[in-house]
Simulated assay, not measured.
Amino acid sequence: MSEAESIRTTTGTPPATAVVFDLGGVFIDWDPRHLYRKIFANERDMERFLEQVCTPTWHAQLDRGVPFSIASQALLTANPGLAGPIRAYHDRFPEMWGPVSRQMVALLHRLNDAGHPTYAATNWPAEYWDGAMATFAFLATFRGILVSGLIGVAKPSRDFFNTLSTTFPITPSQTVFIDDRAENVRAATDAGYRSHRYVGMNALESYLQDNGLEVNGEI
């Protein structure tokens, strides 16, 4: 898939008045493999664990605010021999955080310096959010952050986007929404946002400029 094919946009006028960013996959390289490569001796066993035990579907309930102590009960009962790796999902969650994109943080600072209101909207388990705030200093520079685990609903639910527009002083038709996942971009578009799928810095800068958000200078 080419970069152009990976982008779905809804461009409109007048210029956008706010920007909402996803975090994982845009600013932060979140991936359970960062942790589980330390736990499993080979990639095959690790991938089997992530495909059959601590799966993305299972993780989604954490994003909706279900505590790990509850979400893990069925897994521990069904997989007693994997109790250690399962509990590591909770005990060592910060080890799933990879590097932060310096380019994206620089872009965020330039948007803030130019007076463009910036917000974040993330699928993130509630019980690990305080740790994220303590780890990633750039999070404090957003005017507000909507965290799925704290409100009990996650992207791509329409309720998430409705909550976003009622929690912060933004108008969807005048707000650029940036996410790396196609289903979230489609949902944002359906909710009336000017939506862009993040696939690279050059395309993102162009999209911001097309929407009247100038970020001149080296990013």
Score class of each variant (00 low, 15 high):
Glu43Cys: 06
Glu43Thr: 14
Arg44Lys: 12
Arg44Gly: 01
Arg44Glu: 10
Arg44His: 11
Asp45Thr: 00
Glu47Gly: 01
Glu47Trp: 01
Glu47Pro: 01
Phe49Lys: 00
Leu50Tyr: 04
Glu51Gln: 14
Gln52Ile: 09
Gln52Cys: 12
Val53Lys: 00
Val53Ser: 02
Cys54Met: 10
Thr55His: 05
Pro56Val: 11
Thr57Phe: 08
Trp58Gln: 01
Trp58Leu: 06
His59Ala: 10
Ala60His: 09
Ala60Arg: 12
Leu62Val: 04
Arg64Tyr: 07
Gly65Met: 09
Val66Arg: 03
Val66Asn: 00
Pro67Thr: 06
Pro67Cys: 07
Phe68Gln: 00
Ile70Ser: 09
Ile70Ala: 11
Ala71Arg: 01
Ser72Tyr: 04
Gln73Met: 09
Ala74His: 07
Leu76Arg: 06
Ala78Asn: 10
Ala78Trp: 08
Asn79His: 15
Asn79Ala: 08
Asn79Val: 07
Gly81Val: 10
Leu82Pro: 01
Leu82Gln: 08
Ala83Arg: 04
Ala83Trp: 03
Gly84Met: 10
Gly84Trp: 05
Gly84Asn: 08
Pro85Trp: 00
Pro85Asp: 05
Ile86Asp: 02
Ile86Ala: 02
Ile86Phe: 04
Arg87Trp: 10
Ala88Gln: 07
Ala88Arg: 03
Tyr89Phe: 14
His90Trp: 11
Asp91Ile: 07
Phe93Glu: 13
Phe93Trp: 14
Pro94Leu: 11
Glu95Pro: 03
Met96Ser: 09
Trp97Asn: 08
Trp97Val: 09
Gly98Pro: 06
Pro99Leu: 14
Pro99Ala: 15
Pro99Phe: 13
Val100Cys: 14
Val100Ala: 12
Val100Ser: 07
Ser101Leu: 12
Ser101Glu: 09
Arg102Gln: 15
Gln103Arg: 12
Val105Leu: 09
Val105Gly: 02
Ala106Gln: 13
Leu107Phe: 02
Leu107Asn: 01
Leu108Cys: 03
Leu108Lys: 02
His109Cys: 14
His109Val: 15
Leu111Glu: 03
Asn112Pro: 00
Ala114Pro: 01
Ala114Asn: 15
Gly115Val: 15
Pro117Gln: 11
Thr118Ile: 15
Thr118Gln: 02
Tyr119Gly: 03
Tyr119Val: 10
Ala121Cys: 13
Thr122Val: 14
Asn123Gly: 01
Ala126Tyr: 06
Glu127Gln: 13
